[in-house]
């Protein structure tokens, strides 16, 4: 059981992370990720990241840096202009993994206005699992797994930070 204060710190992190992603502030979002970050969108329910099955997205820290570098070029057509987004976070449950480390489950509904292409509204409901770490007085993430409800597809283009 975490303290009220710990819960506030965790929720504050989730909301900030969501806002930076919603606003496509790529480098500020990336600064929240630790060196051992795993950013993952599996393609099947119940998938193990190491079982040889393909994922929709499976970034270690190096590949995540490449992804952010590509978005920051300003010529990533799929995000020019960036999707306009708004994510609602709920059902936050927090477990302590170790001293200052937390496993956080939440439900997220992301609304995406695809302004760069067909100007449609896309909705991305997902169960999200974060692993967070308090380091030097700041909360950081070292894992974010996004379990899309429709992971088996079909899945539309997903070039923003989810």
């Amino acid at each position: 059981m975490v303290t009220i204060e710990e819960r506030l710190r965790v929720e504050e992190f989730l909301f900030k992370e969501a806002r930076l992603a919603d606003e496509s502030r790529y480098s500020e979002w990336e600064a929240l990720a630790e060196d051992d970050m795993h950013y993952w969108v599996p393609a099947e329910a119940g998938q193990d990241p190491d079982d040889g099955r393909i994922s929709i997205l499976n970034d270690n820290r190096t590949r995540l840096a490449t992804r952010i570098r590509q978005l920051n070029t300003g010529v990533r057509h799929a995000q020019v202009p960036p999707s306009r987004m708004c994510r609602i976070i709920s059902n936050v449950e927090i477990e302590t993994i170790a001293d200052g480390e937390y496993f956080v489950r939440s439900n997220v509904i992301l609304y995406e206005y695809r302004i760069q292409a067909d100007k449609e509204m896309e909705v991305w409901p997902a169960r999200v699992e974060h692993k967070l770490r308090m380091r030097d007085g700041e909360m950081k993430m070292f894992s974010k797994h996004i379990l899309l409800l429709n992971s088996e597809g079909p899945v539309r283009g997903l070039s923003f930070i989810i």
Binding site: A43, E44, G52, R53, I54, S55, I56, A117, D118, E152, G153, P154, V155, R156, G157
Partner: peptide
């Protein structure tokens, strides 16, 4: 045996 990702394009 790696499974398939189904990407929809309009």
């Amino acid at each position: 045996s790696g499974g398939w990702v189904r990407h929809q394009l309009n």
